Computed example of a mutant assay.
Amino acid sequence: MTDQLTSPPLVLVPGHWLGAWAWDDVVVHLSPVDGRARALTLPGLDADDPEHATRTLEDQVGAIRDTLDELGASRDDPAVLVAHSGANGPVSIILDRHPELVRRVVWVDSGPMASGAAFAPGLPEAVSELPLPPFDELAQQASLDGIEPEGLTRFRARAVAEPASVVREPVILTDGARYAVPTTLVCCSISGEQVMRMAESGHPMFAEVTRLRDVDVVDLPTGHWPMWSRPRELADIIRAEVARGR
């Protein structure tokens, strides 16, 4: 059984508008693997940072790499990366630059980005940040199913506007070794079957999935934020992925 002495480093990376706090309900269920677990607040998403709007995609990549170093990730002891939603930008770059440091990536209602892709490439240069939209507007983009009213209240109160440069900048990827990193897709608002059909049809959101050499699909039916709607079940999935060998 995996325990704190044998668990690989585990890094939890939240999506847009979120800090490390977004994983709180999951972390409490992660024992006994939480000895080397770290939930991140990426640069640009720290409410106490007066310069948060100026942080870049490269800043976020650097923060993930620094965390891997702090947790002792190495070629001999690679980490498990868990990436939710819009964290796919910096995590895709980490996989490209340092595939040897990752034993498995777990995409939570997300997936790898293609080189040259950006979340909002046409965002005007005059825009400095993207605040959390009203929930009726957000629900048109991503399912809010399963989040209780108090969860939505917390989301609204703690969300930090996403730096525009992060969503405007394209990810630049050059190393095909990233396709060999074992991958798990945790499919929530879109079923695994739908995701694979979209990938095979060349849909830009999931086209990279067809190039992965070792991919598993796990369905966790709920909305786009399973860390709040089904935290125990998500923790169980993460713990199982941590326990797997490379």
Rank of each mutant, 00 (worst) to 15 (best):
S74C: 03
A73Y: 05
P32Y: 15
A73T: 13
D76P: 10
P50V: 02
W21L: 11
G19W: 05
G15Y: 11
H29N: 15
D76F: 04
P14H: 02
W23Q: 07
D46S: 13
P32G: 09
A39E: 06
D48S: 15
D69E: 13
H52E: 02
V13H: 11
D34I: 14
R55V: 00
D24C: 05
G15V: 12
D34R: 15
T56K: 02
P78Q: 00
D48A: 14
A63I: 02
V28T: 13
V13D: 12
D24G: 03
A63V: 04
P43Q: 05
A53T: 09
A20Q: 10
L45D: 01
A37G: 09
G35N: 01
D59H: 12
D48F: 00
P50L: 06
L71H: 02
D34G: 02
L68E: 06
S74N: 06
P43Y: 07
D25M: 13
R38T: 10
D77V: 03
D48L: 11
L45T: 01
H52A: 12
A63M: 01
A73L: 03
L71Q: 04
V13N: 14
D48E: 11
V27R: 15
D59M: 10
L40Y: 09
S74R: 08
L68F: 08
L57F: 10
T41C: 09
W23S: 08
W21D: 14
L30K: 09
G44A: 04
Q60V: 01
Q60N: 14
V27Y: 12
A22Y: 13
L57K: 07
R36L: 12
L68Y: 08
T41G: 02
L18Q: 14
V61S: 07
A37F: 06
T41K: 13
L57H: 06
D46Y: 01
D48H: 10
V13C: 12
P43I: 02
R36G: 02
G72Q: 07
A63L: 02
L68M: 08
V27P: 01
T67S: 12
